[in-house]
Amino acid sequence: MGFIGDQVQRVRSLIPYGALPALARRRVDGLWQIEEYRSAQEAEMRYLLEHTERAAEIPEIARGYTEFALLRGYRRWHPGKLSRQPVTGIEWLTTKRDPERGVLLSFVHHAQYEGLFPSLARQGAAVHAVVAPEAFDPASPVQLRQHFKVAGMMPNTTLVPATIGTAGMVELLEGGAILGIASDVAGRTPVQFLGRELRGAFGAARMATQTNSPVVLVTSHQGADGNPSLQVHEPLEPGDFADPGALLAEIMRRHEPAVLAWPEAFDSPYTRLGVPAGE
């Protein structure tokens, strides 16, 4: 996207935050008349929900999913709002944690997840967030640059490129850092999520086990006003599981309720979850 495209995107910051949902709805009114586009959005939600009790709602949820995807992009230009999501359970990352032990912070690409790290940071949780290398590429599209700008906007949040590899991440955990890693990442390990067997990434659970780092989940929830809030959950202790595979299975199981309650806010199921096991 060139200079003009960048300017168009930044105009989003001039639109009042409260007006953005209506703007997204109006745009979807037009897009929903395009059968090919509508079918593609329904396919995303079918992939996420067809094996759950919400399968019958897929056409309706697909429209909400499309609206939220647009809204997520619009809201990205209001970092002051995204970085102030209400947080409950923050004590699991602050006063109730052993500062000598690292913490593996598990999240999924749900709701306004770029605002997750600054919202936690404002509550006193300093996180090293593992991100794609594109976060550091000035040639990345403007929306992507803004996404990572929001994620790393607080001084006590450090964006860490995934290219540091397992060794670099283990070093951070062994040094007592809170290491934020997305759990909805495609890999090679069979794992169940919302009734579908997928192939998930095994590395985070393996690192937590190797370093004896508790795993703390953060989930997103829709408030009465439609805005997201965050819930920090009580830690999972790696020693309570037979192996990293069992730990990974429990991590994914515990992420399910928040996604199932608000599936419209899950970002790009095909991209995040990858190809089902056996396909």
Rank of each mutant, 00 (worst) to 15 (best):
D6P: 03
R10T: 00
R10C: 02
I15G: 00
A24G: 06
L31P: 01
E36L: 05
L49H: 07
E50M: 07
A55V: 06
A55G: 05
A56L: 03
F68E: 12
G73Q: 13
R75D: 08
H78R: 05
S83T: 02
R84Q: 15
P86T: 14
G89W: 13
P99S: 12
R101I: 06
H110P: 10
Y113E: 11
E114W: 06
G115Y: 06
L116Y: 03
Q123F: 00
P138S: 09
P138V: 12
A139G: 11
A151Y: 02
M153P: 01
P155A: 07
T158P: 01
A162T: 07
G168F: 06
M169H: 04
L173P: 08
I178Q: 14
I178E: 05
I181N: 07
S183G: 15
T189N: 06
P190D: 07
V191N: 13
F193W: 05
G203V: 10
V216K: 05
V216A: 08
L217K: 05
T219R: 07
Q222M: 13
N227K: 09
P228N: 08
S229G: 15
L236D: 11
D240I: 01
D243Y: 03
L248C: 02
A258P: 02
A258C: 05
V259N: 09
P269L: 07
T271F: 08
